[in-house]
Design a protein around this nucleic acid. Structure first.
Lengths: 194, 194
DNA sequence: CCGAAAAGTTGACCTATGATAATAAATGGA
DNA sequence: TCCATTTATTATCATAGGTCAACTTTTCGG
């Protein structure tokens, strides 16, 4: 894959030219159309994806057939079904392209190979993981203590860029409420502002 | 600190005797009484703790003064305020000893030092982080799609050992419901079983 | 072993959010 | 540009879980 892309993705890892070359060989560029699923519930998870452009979401479908959005990912983020990816198991969620996107794919095999050869890369991802964990703790706090309205306001403030790229019913399913409830919340907010 | 303890904590890291010695110098054993707070909301977070014995929980207090439990930790687990720990910032939560415990404390400084000298340790924690992230994704799924009753049943099944060590109102606050609701759920389950 | 404090339960009532259904508005392909 | 489809809104009614308050049971220090 194009070296300049690899360089951009791992900028903070401060790789040498030699290292960038090697890493590039393990990455694949993937064009993905709106609506495509790059990971499907039940299928073995073998990759994670870096979003070069576009927008994706991970969601799962419960027994009643309802969708629940776990995560959105935009430019610069990584996304995968982590329980499946880390343990090479079937996905418990789907990952859907919600806008035409350009993705950089990294297989688990490549990753393991790179980790053992380039400690810098392992550090790079360890740092990413730390941020992910901190975010999850914050989201858990929000989910335990905020009302639906507060969650929505926080979401909009924290992820303004994402908010502009996704449907309201996706946001609702991320917040754990129905699209109708979100609609009421939005009306309340609009009224108060007026 | 006692080398055999360090050896046990990092068993999977497969450290050499030399490495165990070095690591030991960076760990401190702490005895902690039931009720003590090892981390307090608002104070700078400088350590994470390994639980050698006993039980702890992390929780935060919202604006209405209500407690929300984020995590429990028993023998073999690590606990900290991660947003604070990773970024050396003030804690957004409290960490309380809910049983007399023996903890092994690792400062951020020690950790950073050890990571740069022992890649094995960085791998060790990277793996832990992966498991943590996978667990968080699963918890998020539960919190988005399960009823209170289902969450409780899953909790008991997943964390039987913890369930025996903590108060019901702690479990309620972990599940995001009131102690009264949990009480009713438990009655329902008991009735069905009878 | 006792009594106070902590933990758990129960009942009556309330409220935020869900369910359903109808409608309105926005979007996008021919 | 138009129409079909998708998305968003609104209204009505239902319900899971919250609130408050009284009461019971358990725990634990003296």
């Amino acid at each position: 894959m194009d070296k300049s892309l690899a360089y951009a993705i791992f900028r903070e890892a401060d790789l040498s030219e030699q290292e960038v070359n090697e890493v590039s060989n393990h990455l694949t560029k993937v064009n993905c159309k709106k609506g495509e699923l790059v990971i499907q519930q039940g299928e073995l998870v073998s990759c994670k994806y870096y979003i070069h452009s576009g927008c994706l979401r991970s969601f799962f479908i419960d027994e009643q057939g309802k969708e629940h959005t776990l995560q959105f990912a935009i430019k610069g983020w990584w996304i995968s079904d982590y329980p499946g990816y880390f343990q090479s198991k079937p996905a418990i969620m789907n990952i859907e392209c919600i806008q035409d996107s350009i993705l950089i794919k990294m297989t688990k095999t490549s990753r393991d190979h790179l980790f053992s050869n380039f400690p810098k890369l392992e550090s790079f991802f360890r740092l990413k993981f730390e941020n992910t964990i901190a975010s999850f703790q914050k989201r858990t706090i929000a989910s335990l203590s905020y009302t639906a309205k507060e969650k929505y306001i926080q979401f909009v403030n924290t992820y303004a860029e994402i908010e502009q790229n996704v449907k309201n019913y996706h946001i609702a399913s991320y917040l754990g409420i129905t699209k109708e409830s979100l609609s009421r919340i939005r009306r309340d907010i609009a009224q108060k502002d007026a």
